[in-house]
Amino acid sequence: MTTSASTNTTTSTTADATADTGTSTATDATADTGTSTATGTTATTVPAVPVAATGTVDDAPRGRRRRRRGLAPGKPWPASRLVGPLLLIALWAAASAAGQLDTGAIPAPWTVLETGVNLWTDGTLPTDVLTSLERAAYGFAIGLTAGVALALASGLTRTGEALIDGTVQLNRAIPTLGLIPLFILWLGIGETFKIAIIAIVVYIPVYLNTHAALSGIDHRFVELAEVQGLSKVRFVRQIVIPGALPGFFVGLRLGVTGSWLGLVVLEQINATSGLGYMMFQAQNYGQSDVILVGLLIYGVFGLLSDTAVRLIERRVLSWRRTLSS
């Protein structure tokens, strides 16, 4: 937006011309000078633009056939979500092979893999993974149940809304990890407080999104339900809940990711096993390869659980035709 007046003039001319022809070279030109200013200065270039525009329009039918590009991003690629991560690993491997990375700070991928295999075969890694999975699963299950139950109570009744919504908003304003000291005092330093914290991290996004979706139900559908003579129970079951599912899934995906995030922090506090513990120990001994093994496992689990939720979402919400399908 800070380009000078003279460059603006040229930009807008090129931008308008490109809009008509739609060639790829022109986009490069506009990208160099900055496109956002183009509209602001069209007035100054008015004489030049129409001439260029009519010229291209006349040429178009005779010349190269103009193809209109759709505004939707197009067909999805197969396994497109893996492309980015794989590229990242390839870069990492290439840089390591070329000796560009300090092996003490970032060991080569094959070193990390070897460490992973060793940790797995000597039995420490399976124990750590299982412990972490168990904590995440318990916390997630409790958080999910609480989030949905509270959202239903608050979204469907005025009493529930009065009691619950403000309280949850307050809870949301407090950083959950900031509750750790208090929870340790209340629940002891064992497993309970860890699961409780994860549950809180999970329930907040689940509650917020589900509640927003429940209370945002289209008024036209409420009218329809009245006209069709639906009972309150049927109205909730057949209209409110199905209508709120898309919002619920947004919350669910945030919650799944949140449960893993909470875990990393929690397992560095008085834990004797778990991925976070393993990484914390590795830090003390300067084993960057072990830390990377832990991070990779977190990453893989996060990706897997997110994919699982997406798959369920796609099945349950198969009636939706959106940009992603």
Binding site: R220, E223, A225, Q228, L230, Q238, P242, G243, W319, R320
Partner: peptide, 18 residues
């Protein structure tokens, strides 16, 4: 004025609403 069909129910299930 709008058909007011529930997008998450198939056509027959919409007709049978209630």
């Amino acid at each position: 004025q709008d058909s007011r069909l529930l997008p998450w129910r198939r056509v027959l299930d919409n007709v049978l609403l209630g």
